[in-house]
């Protein structure tokens, strides 16, 4: 191990293994064409936000919010076959929303790594500036 190049190679190897494991878990979470409700949908990255909105509307759904990536959206429809219609409109794949909630990281050596969203919601809004 002689330097930065080896560190970079180790990083790439770790990222490759991580991507594989994450990919396998996400593959388990893909939704079939018949499913409806709130889903996270991945559109081609070259499309702009307006196209994402239009394609979702054409599939009979509504955009509920944006996920961490620009081409990843949380969309909603109660009509069965929503996922299939999204794919007909050019979407690549749809997932359950759960794994795409933006998570917090564990702090150094401290306590629980993620604060549940409900914890944040319960904090009172106050003028808490020093």
């Amino acid at each position: 191990m002689t330097g930065h190049r080896h560190a970079a190679l180790l990083l790439l190897a770790v990222l490759a293994a991580w991507s594989l494991l994450l990919g396998l878990a996400l593959w388990q979470l893909r939704l079939n064409d018949e499913q409806a409700g709130k889903v996270v949908v991945l559109f081609p990255p070259a499309w702009d936000a307006q196209t994402h909105f239009e394609r979702t509307l054409r599939a009979g759904g509504l955009v509920v919010g944006q996920a961490p990536l620009a081409n990843l959206w949380v969309v909603y429809s109660e009509q069965a076959g929503f996922v299939g219609r999204l794919k007909d409109q050019g979407a690549w794949i749809a997932f359950q929303p759960a794994p795409f909630a933006i998570v917090t990281l564990g702090g150094c050596f401290s306590g629980p790594g993620a604060l549940p969203p409900s914890f944040l919601k319960t904090r009172r809004l106050s003028g808490d500036r020093p």
Partner: peptide, 29 residues
């Protein structure tokens, strides 16, 4: 690090910053 990791999200939300921004902030850390 323990204070910031644990309390920063709540501090930001208390001051009107979106919870997603708070979460992204810790991801950036």
């Amino acid at each position: 690090v323990a204070f910031i990791a644990t309390h920063l999200p709540a501090y930001l939300v208390d001051n009107g910053i979106a919870a997603s921004t708070a979460a992204w902030a810790l991801a950036l850390v």
